[in-house]
Amino acid sequence: MIENARSIDRTATVLLLLGSVFVLLPLAFVAITATQSYGDFLRNNFSLLPGTHFWDNVAAVWSLTDLPRQIMNSVIVAALVSGGKCFLAFTTAYAVVFFRTRYVPLVYAAVVASIMLPIELRVITVYQVASNLALPVNAAANTGGLWAVLFGAPLDLQLNALDSYAGIALPLMAQGAGTLILVQFFKTLPRDLARAATMDGAGPLRFMADVLLPLSKGPLLSLFIYFFIGGWVDYMWPLVAASSPEMQTAVVGLARLGPGMEEDIPNYPLEMTGAIMVTVIPLVLIALTQRRIVRGLALSEK
């Protein structure tokens, strides 16, 4: 660019080269392991010599798992999770940034506090709630035996969300990262946007739909892709929430390739092959949309 640009560019190239190698090395190792047979693996453990069994492993994974069905489940769940997160984040962030109402910071704090406690630590109680979404309604109606006095019996509504796409996706949406990112984006928008819209006669909802939403298309799309991949690799909750094999996601289905007994040595070649097969879709997604992700997350409107 300006002064000694060449030496800066050379340093940049070296750094990027190192970074790329650092990122690729583990992936290369996955690819190599996927080409070995279980027998090779038992004799040599992990090794850096490629084998010749990749397609055998692919065929084995294909026959041991129900990939077409599970990949469809993954697509649906990941799309629901990321779509839901984007929608929730958009309306919440709009409320947080563009309203001068007193309780708004409280709402924001309540949402952001959820970022740090992973769902792994709430599995049992989230399951309890998901198995009957009407739990809080029942509890409220039955406080002090009120419902029983009025209607003769305590209220006992049942609404089981387990083993459904909604039941798998909804608890995964309860995480405030999207809100945080969109709030930051909205804060970088020109200050008089809302004032100008009002002068043109638009109310808050019109402003949101006609001005803010088009402006946010880029960030929302990036977030969608980003959360989609995140939802794709989620393991613990989809495993617990899907009681029937038909509802399992692809990453959960891969667990089937794990060792049969606690004492067994895992069939890593097979597991790595499965990991590659399941990762292909998000990887292609990244490769195709990388420019869009980068542009969309700029947190600023140029």
């Binding site: 041991l64 667990a255 089937r256 390739l257 794990g258 060792p259 049969g260 007994m261 067994d264 069939n267």
Partner: peptide, 8 residues
């Protein structure tokens, strides 16, 4: 709970 050949 088993996976792998035991599950089969």
């Amino acid at each position: 709970g088993n996976t792998g050949n035991v599950e089969t």
